[in-house]
Nucleic acid binder design. Sequence first.
DNA 1: CATTCTCCTTGACGACTGTCAAGTTTTGGC
DNA 2: GCCAAAACTTGACAGTCGTCAAGGAGAATG
Lengths: 240, 240
Amino acid sequence: MAEILWTIVKIGYAARLPLPRSLWGVTETSSQPRRAKPRPAKRSREDKYDERRTQLAESALATLGERGYARTSLREIAQNSEFSHGVVHYYFASKADLILHCVRYYKIDCATRYDEIIATATDPEEFANRFVERLLGTLRQDASMHRLWYDLRGQSMFDQEFADQVEEIDRLLEDMIWRIVTKFAELSGLQPAFSPALSYAMFDGVFFKALLAHVHGDELAPDRLREEAFALLPSLFRDA
Amino acid sequence: MAEILWTIVKIGYAARLPLPRSLWGVTETSSQPRRAKPRPAKRSREDKYDERRTQLAESALATLGERGYARTSLREIAQNSEFSHGVVHYYFASKADLILHCVRYYKIDCATRYDEIIATATDPEEFANRFVERLLGTLRQDASMHRLWYDLRGQSMFDQEFADQVEEIDRLLEDMIWRIVTKFAELSGLQPAFSPALSYAMFDGVFFKALLAHVHGDELAPDRLREEAFALLPSLFRDA
DNA sequence: CATTCTCCTTGACGACTGTCAAGTTTTGGC
DNA sequence: GCCAAAACTTGACAGTCGTCAAGGAGAATG
């Protein structure tokens, strides 16, 4: 059963490939593994190298999402890929290097989830409906990815190494929420009542609570999230 | 430096002792360690046994608060107490048993932090001021305890063993917030605008964000929390 | 005083971890 | 088809972990 779930998650991620490497390749700052410094001149080689890194990052994300950061070993990640455990250190300098790569990979998705809705919405009520339904969808579908994010965010309180990346993603998420808030204000002719940070914090608290209940097996969690989101949304605004 | 900080934390916890054992002794359900089943008839023995358990739980809490759940070993906990590592399994059946005992110990405090303010407040503005100031106080003073709570809450998404305890504490905290909300409503003649769960989730999101920033070294975090709390508080109510 | 039980220390066990070196297989350029 | 570089596997390392058994110190009990 868990195997099936895991496979679904894996396929889900694989389906999004390929991603342009320019998205994170340029900002790569971590130390390189023992691979020879001068990369092959041939383009296909370089691509294959990055593809393997991504492939391993996906396996890592799927495993991390199921077992959590603390309980996931490099051997386990490799076991859920088609490679042996040694290959991890061929493509990543360390475990932290791998995790940070995973987080970078994750954040590409996380902050653009509602942009399509924002771009195409014309009516405030329709906008709210589509937003909330997508919120419920990601709660159910990407639950293990979300709990990994909250796990890593929690770890960043004890491990300084994660703090910067976590803060960066937090900013992206705050911007995402703020784009929703301003769009809704624009469509409805109202004014945002709170700062971007406060709006995000409120929404994040509500979403996390729903995720926690959902993960703990509460089948009513999505429905309750819908109610709460519809209760929260209007109170984020005041008359212009 | 870290040593000094740790000592301060430890003294802080020791100062709260002794606690009546009836508070958690009756609900004790975890398996007992290898200590002989029929406890000594002498009262002082039994007390000493519970005192040691509490003493170890305090050391554990201090260490866990500094290093986080995943990084803290039983040897480290014992090293920060005055005992050797073997003694842990004399008083606790397993690591999980110890952690759960710590959590139970923690929750006695966590949910009664504002009750004195609730009981003595007479004016809504004065009530809000005292509440927010105590909120800032606990953010600064009990930061490592709070991050441990959020850490364990996150772990409960991967470790079913923690789920029940986490849900129980979450309920206590929700009740705590709701007592504040209803008291404020009573003093100000307004009506709570949201459900207890939603009110708690919003406040929790705001507090966690402040804690994260504070732990990451943001010195303005408490001041921002004050602003945000004062912005959030009135919007939790509507006219009667 | 002798015995028993409590309390605690010590040391060891098997399992697991991240890391890495050595060796094998595969690939691509000539 | 050869050969060097890349890609991957294997096995081992030093360390840590939770757990527990053996035994000693010391107080309580008779």
